[in-house]
Every structure is written in structure tokens, then in C-alpha cells.
Design a protein around this nucleic acid. Structure first.
Length: 225
DNA sequence: ATGCGGATGATCT
DNA sequence: GATCATCCGCATC
């Protein structure tokens, strides 16, 4: 197993967050370049009642309509709509959308303002607030980490991320309740595969994961070994 | 371990 | 009216 960062929080004391927020410039680039660089970084949700955080172990890139050829699986591929407007805004902002009537997925916008593109967060390794994550997911407190945050909607449920509260939030601001942070951890390896759960461009190699990590999502055959 | 079907509602054409 | 970047439970191997 891998080393797990300690994030301690004493009662009545604001937690000292590990590392530093990822600079916005990181996201001012093509999603296929940004995506692998997010592996190993921390997604941190600061709530009134405590910290929820996980290390990113699986992501997917979705390309903007300026890309040639266009990415038919991307929400932005036909241009701006009310739902996807965040993707055409500045980089480094959360794009949270509802899916299948009951779930949410979280992305981070990429590219300069005016251009779309994003990285979908597909799986985290839980790092802080596991007890609350289990409660948010309706699982018992001793549920394995994999059941908490392995899957794009599972991780949103575990961290309490919703469209109403989090869509459009900047993840590179020191004041933000939702941040991507770099604590210096480097993933040992990155594996590239096709994206999961889409019906178009099924062969494009735009999924990036830490091979062998137990929290990576997907059927076992699809999971990197 | 793998493969289905159903829940459930916003979004877009 | 159709689609959907999902999850869970249950059936079957």
C-alpha cells in the first residue's frame, strides 16, 4: 500500500492544509496535457464541519470544440449552452453537472478563457474525512476506501459536491472551499487507456490512471493492473 | 467476476 | 422525445 498523507484537525482549530494550491497556469493548457499532471494531487473540500480530501488517482480529458478533430464525447463539443458555460470561462474552475437524475460529476475547466476543455475527476484515494465520506455515501464507517471515492459520482457524493453549491467555483484560490493542492507527492506511474462510459470516440486514449491503485474505477478488466 | 435492468430528471434537439 | 462522462442490486457463470 501507499503512503497516505496525514491531515490532522483539532477541534475548534482551522486545519492546516497540506502543500500549496496548484497554480492556475497549470490549467491554462490542453486537457490531455493537464489530466496526467493532476494525478497524485489532492482535491480538498473545506466545509464548516471539517475537511474532506482525496488524492486524485484517475482522470479523463474532454477536448473543446476548437480541437481537430472535435471530441464528440465532450459536453462542450457543440459550443456553449447554459449547462456548459463554465467550460468556456477561465481555467481552473469546477464544472459540476447532474447526470442520470441522481448523481453529479466534477470536472475542472482547462484552456484560456473563451476556449473550452476540461478534466473529469473519476477516482480519488480518500485522505481526510473518511468517516463523513462513508456517511455521505450511505455506507458503514468500516467500508473499504474503494467504495467511497471510486467513480466520478461516488467521489462527488463522498465529498458532498453538488452543482448548486460548487459549479463555477475556482479551485486555485487560497480562499476557495474547493481546491486542488500539491503536497509534493508524485505518482509512481501513469497508464493511458480509452475513456469509460461514453458512446463516441471510444478509442481515444484520454483516460489517465495510477496503475494498480485499488481506488481506480471501472470493471476489473478495464482497470489498469 | 461479469452482465443485465431500473431508478430518475436535467438537458438539448 | 431521446439521450446520458452512473450506481446499485440481483442473476448467472
Amino acid at each position: 500500500m501507499e503512503e497516505i498523507a496525514q491531515i490532522k484537525q483539532r477541534p475548534g482549530e482551522s486545519p492546516r492544509l497540506p502543500g500549496r494550491v496548484l497554480p492556475r497556469a497549470i490549467f491554462d493548457a490542453s486537457p490531455e496535457l493537464v489530466a496526467p499532471r493532476l494525478l497524485g494531487k489532492l482535491l480538498v473540500h473545506r466545509t464548516a464541519t471539517g475537511l474532506l480530501a482525496g488524492r486524485i488517482v484517475e482522470v479523463e480529458a474532454y477536448l473543446g470544440p476548437h480541437n481537430r478533430p472535435p471530441d464528440p464525447a465532450a459536453h462542450a463539443h457543440r459550443g456553449p449552452t447554459p449547462r456548459n458555460q463554465v467550460l468556456f470561462g477561465p481555467p481552473g474552475h469546477a464544472y459540476v453537472y447532474a447526470i442520470y437524475g441522481r448523481y453529479f460529476c466534477m470536472n475542472i475547466s482547462c484552456e484560456s478563457e473563451g476556449r473550452a476543455g476540461c478534466v473529469l475527476l473519476r477516482a480519488l484515494e480518500p485522505v481526510a474525512g473518511m468517516q463523513r465520506m462513508a456517511a455521505n455515501r450511505g455506507l458503514s464507517t468500516n467500508a473499504p476506501a474503494r467504495q467511497l471515492t471510486s467513480g466520478p459520482s461516488r467521489l462527488c457524493q463522498a465529498l458532498g459536491l453538488t452543482r448548486m453549491s460548487h459549479n463555477g467555483i475556482c479551485v486555485t484560490s487560497a480562499k476557495s472551499m474547493l481546491q486542488v493542492r500539491d503536497d509534493g507527492f508524485a505518482v509512481p506511474e501513469v497508464r493511458v487507456t480509452p475513456r469509460i462510459g461514453i458512446k463516441h470516440a471510444v478509442d481515444w486514449p484520454l483516460r489517465f490512471a495510477v496503475p494498480g491503485h485499488p481506488c481506480v474505477s471501472g470493471p476489473k478488466q478495464m482497470r489498469p493492473i
